[in-house]
């Protein structure tokens, strides 16, 4: 049984103010899904890191926000999309302390540690998409094969 088509919001990432807006929207969505305070904070922080990456390294882009429903489980998926230069060496970019933007180099690797699911898709010259997903804690994951 699959979830009904989930509502999707699309937010632009083109300025400082957009970063703040993305943080607020993600916070609201996570709270609405019943995420605990710590999980909310982690997810919003990850979103902030990734949105800043989209802005600084990708030259701007957008984030797509999708609410997920699988059985009793509720989740939130965020896809950060840019059409920037892409990442030539993904493994290197995922290394702690690696930076090209004058930050602390914790953006990608740190964001990955803050969420449950993380995928990065990048093609040099075409852009980067980072997708993260978090599920509300305290509920069993969808049943796979109960009698």
């Amino acid at each position: 049984m699959h979830a009904p088509p989930a509502p999707t919001a699309r937010l632009p990432i083109a300025s400082d103010a957009d970063l703040a807006w993305v943080r607020q929207q993600v916070r609201q969505a996570a709270a609405g899904l019943g995420f605990g305070l710590v999980q909310q904070t982690k997810l919003v922080t990850a979103a902030s890191e990734l949105a800043r990456n989209t802005l600084v390294h990708g030259g701007g882009g957008h984030v797509e926000m999708t609410t997920l429903e699988e059985g009793a489980a509720r989740g939130l998926r965020l896809s950060f999309v840019d059409n920037g230069p892409g990442i030539r060496d993904v493994d290197l970019a995922m290394t702690d302390g690696y930076t090209t933007g004058g930050g602390l180099g914790m953006g990608l690797s740190g964001a990955k540690r803050l969420v449950q699911e993380f995928t990065l898709d990048s093609r040099p010259g075409e852009g980067t998409t980072v997708t993260v997903t978090d599920w509300a804690a305290g509920l069993p994951s969808p049943r796979t094969g109960a009698p």
């Binding site: 710590v38 909310q40 904070t41 982690k42 914790m106 740190g110 540690r113 803050l114």
Partner: peptide, 13 residues
């Protein structure tokens, strides 16, 4: 705040 501290540590900072 506690949640902020936990997140920063997890982030590696």
């Amino acid at each position: 705040r506690p949640a902020v501290a936990i997140t920063l540590v997890e982030l590696g900072l």
